[in-house]
Computed example of a mutant assay.
Amino acid sequence: MLARLKELRNLEGKLVLITGASSGLGKLVAYEMAERGASVVLCARNVEELRKVAERCKEISQADAFVVKLDVSDSEAIDHQLEHVLQDIGSIDVLINSAGFGLFEPFKDIEMQPVEKMFRVNVLGLMYVTQKIAQQMIKMGRGQIFNIASVAGKIATPKSTAYSATKFAVIGFSNALRLELRPLGVQVTTVNPGPMDTNFFKRADPSGHYFDAVKLLALSPEKVAHQIVEAVGYRRREINAPTYMEIIHRGYELFPNFGDLLASSSFFNRK
């Protein structure tokens, strides 16, 4: 099975499906995949932005770039649109589940409707997309799935209760799925980035205070996108960025009481 996975290291002629491809990390992963010669299937709600990304991908790769309007909070739309992709475009070699959003508010004040929406997008939508594509990958005996989680799914901090819950769920789902799919030739890799300089924060924290507080520590999304593409074709369990966050997480697990103090300190609690 590992030999089949290695076939993905050469991305020329391979088909990559990316959710959340109209902006942020998803868009940058699309460009990186195009640099490696892959054809891309770009999925998001904003078709106008998707078309711009698709044109840029074509310029880079001289390969196909397909635009698919997709709302991952709508399970019927997922089933319909991905059936169209698999029948009319082709079998997916690599899946990047990048669609998602956050909301940073104290739990005592947060409205539950956007929390439900967050779970539909960040967790359930990811699971629906993954199941549909994984079924096809199993038939091929080869494929790789990247689930974009977050360091917030490993280290919870104040004002991220709902968002952290969705990302803890994504990590737990991915860990179990990895064990199920590996014997079938499909690798599952979880990506856990810290704060990145993307438009994610415009929705998560409209005030801008949090990003202003962490911008000196913010990751380059281009670097994270490069790390993802470099992991294609390898049995990489996780990508944790920056690396020191994984070290802190290990310490958090070993010394949870101290971890709680650290997570609520001014170093982490900047929202």
Rank of each mutant, 00 (worst) to 15 (best):
H226F: 03
E59K: 15
M1W: 02
Q227R: 13
P106H: 06
M196G: 09
I239W: 10
D74Y: 06
N199E: 09
N257G: 04
L28Q: 09
A63T: 14
V224T: 13
Q113T: 14
H80A: 15
G102T: 10
L95H: 09
A30S: 12
L219G: 13
L50Q: 04
F211C: 03
C43K: 08
V129S: 05
F211V: 07
E180L: 08
A54L: 03
K167H: 04
K27S: 15
H226S: 12
H84L: 07
A38P: 11
K202V: 13
L86W: 14
L86M: 15
R237V: 12
L126S: 01
R178W: 07
Q131Y: 02
F200I: 08
R51A: 01
Q113L: 14
L50Y: 05
P183E: 14
S265H: 00
M140C: 07
L262Q: 06
V214R: 06
Y244N: 07
I96L: 11
T189N: 07
A34R: 07
V186C: 10
K117M: 03
G251Y: 04
Y234C: 08
K69S: 10
I228C: 05
R45V: 10
I92F: 08
Y163L: 02
R56K: 15
K202H: 15
R250W: 12
Q227S: 13
H209Q: 08
R203C: 00
R270I: 00
